[in-house]
Design a binder for these strands. Structure first.
Length: 594
RNA sequence: GCCGAUGUAGCUCAAUGGCAGAGCACGGCUUUCGUAAAGCCGGGGUUGUGGGUUCGACUCCCACCAUCGGCUCCA
């Protein structure tokens, strides 16, 4: 490669009509090039060539662009090697892909590598370890996060803030269990559609397990039962008299057989660790007769869900197998839908602003008409897609529309951010759903005294606490703003002579609810400051004999800034105000009235 | 799930077929010190797990598990 760069070989682009180029490619016999050429648009194909005919000449089908010549490459480095599916299709062959980076000169390359190293220091997995935020233990299970005390404070503080906001916005808190009967998810469609990414169901008996198998078989045979299905029924009938009595409508279409099996399953079924909270919330909605006067009903829960993510996908806190969504489901009339979506968009944006996450993009996920993974009618999809589009336009947000990014029950608005290495993660999400209300036959009584179908909005402004905090760690590089910092102030005594006053300072801080620690070890002040700084504690209070004499605290920040000596009470009050503002000035009462 | 790499003390990492080590952290003692690391001593390991090769395995081979980087997936 060094040689090629030294030769400064120019690249020349030329185009050839498709009719001429294809036979040539076929003659060369590179199947992938032929495939690429067939995929390419247009009537002509572009090629790049370098070197003289004969010796060292390299010619390649490529859309381009290329650097003008190899001499422009001053520095390069192979970054990593990994398998990649041909055209990103997992059913296709996997090829080896070599990732490299090239720069005009050595310095630019080194700067880039330096920058990568800096980014790695922000990695939430590393900081989570260093700052005692969370841990993952293989004996608990991959992708199952253990929140350590420091991380739990960050999460708890976020939870409390969101809770207050939910109440202000008319949400009603509910609590539901993290497990439910399998049939609940047969109705919603989560089972067996997402079977592969769910923990396997728990069956209370072998009978229930076999019946579920029968249900799955019946589902796969539209016209009539297969031999395997009938054999399974016979096996069950032999063991269970009650099943034998009913018989099995083997010649009937799937719908009828499924109905029969589900009736049996109603007595004895499996349980699923829930992959979503919506079915439980749907059942709370359905537990009362609802009037149009009651709508919208907004049921909120920090709901624990479990998804069996593929082994290669589990990643720190951002892609896990058990997580807690700041979830809620809004049940409303079609008329109320626009206002409800707008409210959800507003809350999601507010949540991001609260933590100064302003580098995000908004994606509208639409159904892929070519795919069969979606439930519900075209009309329902048309309505919900229109509602989603209208909401982002009302909010005046830049967004992209992406086909195939919808949930199986409805289109969505996603808030997407990047981690320290530029990988994208979906945080907040808002989903419009006409379909689950139908599947669960939800109604409300309208002013015409007739039952009507409500619309559902699924929404989670943060997404999940796991992913959100993971991203926050990287966003702040572990240096959380005061209101979120696990430890907000560290009292560092210079010597034992100032220990007594140091304890008084500690008490005064703790008194007003500041999260404070005292370092009364016999280390020197420099070591104490270093430790507190590395723990990214916002305020380090240096307490010596001078401070003790004057009732002062000497304040140093984790950035190394000296804020000088202040009266103890002044410091404590300033902190209280800073915490209350949550890092952003709130309008005064007078301002908020106008 | 797929491709590849990695796995040694709580953490970061040495030891390449011949007695498993260092720094930090942890415990004890000395020290009481003014803004990013005081000193001494000590405890700590079934080298991811299971098999194999070998006189002998952290080291070589196989399987599994986990992690890391991609791919695919992501309700």
């Amino acid at each position: 490669m060094r040689e090629i760069v030294k030769d400064d070989r120019p690249f020349t682009r030329y185009e050839v009509p498709r009719d001429e180029a294809m036979p040539k490619l076929r003659a060369e016999g590179n199947l992938y090039k032929i495939d690429n050429a067939e995929r390419a648009d247009g009537d002509s194909l572009s090629f790049y060539v370098t070197g003289q005919p004969g010796e060292g000449r390299f010619e390649d089908l490529c859309r381009g662009p290329h650097v003008p010549s190899t001499g422009r490459i001053g520095a390069y480095k192979v970054m990593n090697v990994a398998g990649a599916y041909w055209h990103g299709d997992a059913s296709k062959q996997m090829l080896q892909r070599v990732y490299g980076t090239t720069w005009p000169d050595k310095k630019a390359l080194n700067d880039y590598l330096q920058q990568l190293e800096e980014a790695r220091k922000r990695d939430h997995r590393r900081l989570g370890q260093e700052l005692g935020l969370f841990t993952l233990d293989p004996s608990v299970g991959p992708g199952l996060v253990l929140w350590k005390p420091n991380g739990a404070i960050v999460r708890h503080t976020l939870e409390e803030t969101i809770r207050q906001e939910l109440l202000r916005r008319g949400y009603q808190p509910v609590y539901t269990p993290a497990i439910g009967k399998l049939d609940l998810y047969r109705t919603s469609g989560h089972y067996p559609y997402y079977k592969d990414s769910q923990y396997p169901p728990l069956f209370e008996s072998r009978r229930a397990e076999r019946l579920n198998k029968l249900w799955e078989l019946a589902r796969g045979n539209e016209e009539r039962a297969s031999d395997e299905e009938v054999a399974l029924y016979n096996e069950l009938a032999e063991q269970h008299k009650d099943l034998a009595e009913f018989g099995y409508p083997a010649a009937a279409p799937a719908e009828e057989r499924l109905k029969r099996v589900r009736a049996w399953l109603a007595q004895e079924d499996g349980y699923l660790l829930r992959p979503m909270n919506c079915p439980h919330h749907v059942k709370i909605y359905a537990s009362e007769k609802r009037s149009y006067r009651d709508l919208p009903v907004r049921l909120a829960e920090f709901g624990n869900v479990y998804r069996f993510e593929q082994s290669g996908e589990v990643h720190g806190m951002t892609r896990v197998r058990g997580f807690t969504q700041d979830d809620a489901h809004v049940f409303c009339t079609p008329d109320q839908l626009p206002a409800e979506i707008n409210g959800c968009v507003d809350m999601a944006r507010q949540a991001l602003k609260m933590v100064q996450l302003d580098d995000y993009r908004v994606r509208i996920g639409l159904r892929d008409p070519k795919s069969d993974k979606y439930i519900g009618s075209n009309e329902n999809w048309a309505k919900s897609e229109a509602a989603i589009r209208a909401a982002v336009q009302t909010a005046n947000i830049n967004y992209t529309e992406e086909i195939g990014e919808a949930a199986f029950y409805g289109p969505k608005i996603d808030f997407v951010v990047k981690d320290c290495l530029g990988r994208e993660w979906q945080l907040g999400t808002i989903q419009v759903d006409y379909n689950l209300p139908e599947r669960f036959d939800l109604t409300y009584i309208g002013d015409d005294n007739q039952p009507h179908r409500p619309v559902m909005v699924h929404r989670a402004p943060l997404g999940s606490f796991e992913r959100f905090v993971g991203i926050l760690i990287e966003h702040f590089a572990g240096a959380f703003p005061l209101w979120l910092a696990p430890v907000q102030a560290a009292v560092c005594t210079v010597s034992d002579k100032s220990l007594e006053y140091g304890r008084k300072v500690f008490e005064a801080c703790a008194q007003i609810g500041l999260r404070v620690m005292i370092d009364d070890s016999d280390d020197r002040i420099g070591a104490k400051i270093r430790r507190a700084t590395m723990q990214k504690i916002p305020y380090i209070l240096v307490i010596g004999e001078q401070e003790a004499a004057g009732g002062l605290v000497n304040v140093r920040t984790r950035e190394g800034k000296q804020l000088g000596s202040h009266k103890l009470l002044d410091f404590v009050h300033a902190c209280a105000i800073e915490v209350n503002e949550r890092g952003q000035k709130k309008p005064t009462p007078a301002e908020s009235v106008s």
